[in-house]
């Protein structure tokens, strides 16, 4: 066996030792605790990074909608008559009822979150199902109203009114659809017992996003439908 082969074998041994940590001295003394400060409590930040990330995401979404609302305000307050003459009138009453349905879905989401904190899986599932059903009803009614409006001649290309209406309300509808998909993922996790009393971050984050799309809607409804 040559000297070079011996060197390679020795190098492999050292690599294995380093990889699996055998024979290495402990980094922290035995009595230092997990965090090296003499106690065994993990030094957790006051707010987990995932919550801050979701808040930032919601903040970015808010600014996105602020841009759309800003464009809408230019045309809405820059016109002598709104909606412009000979344009279709929007279904205020039906959408008002739909607004109530969406607002109620925030309450059922809150009930689900409270049930998760208590460890009540049955009520958690109930709350999530109710929220998903109300969200779906909201989207179906919106879709039905859109079909009727298009039938009456209000399209993206029928003027500023149609373009701003479909952009603003359509973007919100897409966000509700996204939140609904997220909710269904959380629902699946809850059914598979992957959410516990101490660990339901997915539900918390989904609840935050759901609250965002729900709170945003009355603002859009007031601005676009009630004039």
């Amino acid at each position: 066996m040559s000297i070079e082969t011996l060197d390679i074998e020795r190098a492999e041994e050292v690599t294995e030792t380093l990889t699996f940590g055998e024979g290495l001295p402990p980094i922290l003394p035995e009595d230092a605790g997990h965090n090296g400060r003499g106690d065994n409590h993990e030094a957790k930040p006051p707010i987990a990074s995932l919550y801050i990330a979701t808040l930032l995401f919601i903040g970015a979404e808010t600014m996105f909608f602020a841009g759309l609302i800003g464009a809408f305000i230019v045309f809405r307050f820059g016109s002598l008559m709104w909606p412009p003459p000979l344009q279709v009138r929007l279904p205020v009453e039906v959408t008002g009822v739909n607004t109530a349905i969406l607002l109620f879905s925030a309450y059922t989401m809150f009930l689900a979150w409270r049930a998760a904190n208590r460890g009540d899986t049955r009520r958690l599932l109930q709350g999530l199902w109710m929220t998903a059903i109300f969200g779906t009803i909201f989207l179906v009614v919106q879709g039905y109203e859109w079909i009727r409006l298009i039938g009456f001649g209000l399209t993206m290309s029928s003027g500023v009114f149609g373009a701003t209406f479909y952009t603003l309300i359509g973007c919100h509808g897409l966000h509700v659809f996204g939140a609904l998909c997220w909710l269904l993922v959380v629902l699946r996790m809850a059914r598979a017992n992957r959410l516990s009393v101490n660990r339901h971050v997915a539900l918390d984050l989904c609840g935050m996003y759901w609250a965002f799309v729900v709170v945003l809607w009355p603002v859009l409804y007031t601005l676009v439908y009630l004039h």
Partner: peptide, 25 residues
């Protein structure tokens, strides 16, 4: 003009939003 009024309101709204957002979060 009316359009000028619309632009002014939009500018004020967009000016207010970042403060409201950063302030609340």
């Amino acid at each position: 003009s009316e359009l000028g009024r619309g632009f002014n309101m939009s500018i004020l709204f967009l000016l207010f939003m970042p403060f409201a957002l950063v302030g609340s979060i």
